[in-house]
């Protein structure tokens, strides 16, 4: 049977709970226990805590596998955005080549409000067409 993330976390929690109980027992009965018994109980407490932590490590491993798709999608989106940023340079070039700004300047200089609006729209459309 394959271990799930939740299984691993539940096992981690169980091991930890028992370790804590062992630790409490050791604490409460310190004076009644001999050195070897104390050492043995301490080792068992630590072994269980280590087992708990190993289960958490497994849960992290499962978590990493489960979320691989989300991260791959996010990375793909980030890279697509970078490509888009290169495209915006193209928008700037087209603006320049189309002479949108220069056409606008001519319209402004001729004091032709209609031409200003037309040229402004042309600049806007040039960018919008490229972004479509």
């Amino acid at each position: 049977m394959k271990l799930t993330k939740d299984d691993a976390l539940e096992l981690a929690s169980c091991f930890r709970e028992v370790a804590i109980q062992l630790g409490n027992y050791l604490e409460d009965n310190w004076s009644n226990l001999g050195p070897s018994q104390r050492q043995e109980l301490q080792n068992e407490e630590f072994t269980l805590l280590n087992a708990s932590s190993q289960m958490r490590t497994k849960a992290v491993g499962i978590l990493l596998d489960e979320e691989e798709v989300s991260f791959a999608k996010l990375q793909g989106a980030a890279r697509k955005a970078k490509t888009a940023m290169k495209k915006i340079k193209k928008v700037a070039q087209v603006l320049e080549l189309a002479g949108g700004v220069v056409g606008l300047a001519a319209a402004i200089l001729s004091r032709d409000l209609g031409a200003i609006v037309t040229n402004a729209k042309a600049v806007y459309d040039a960018a919008s067409t490229l972004s479509a």
Partner: peptide
């Protein structure tokens, strides 16, 4: 300023 503003408006829409 007008030329700059219009150019920015166009690319802002795209951005």
């Amino acid at each position: 300023g007008l030329g700059k503003a219009l150019s920015k408006a166009a690319t802002n829409h795209w951005r």
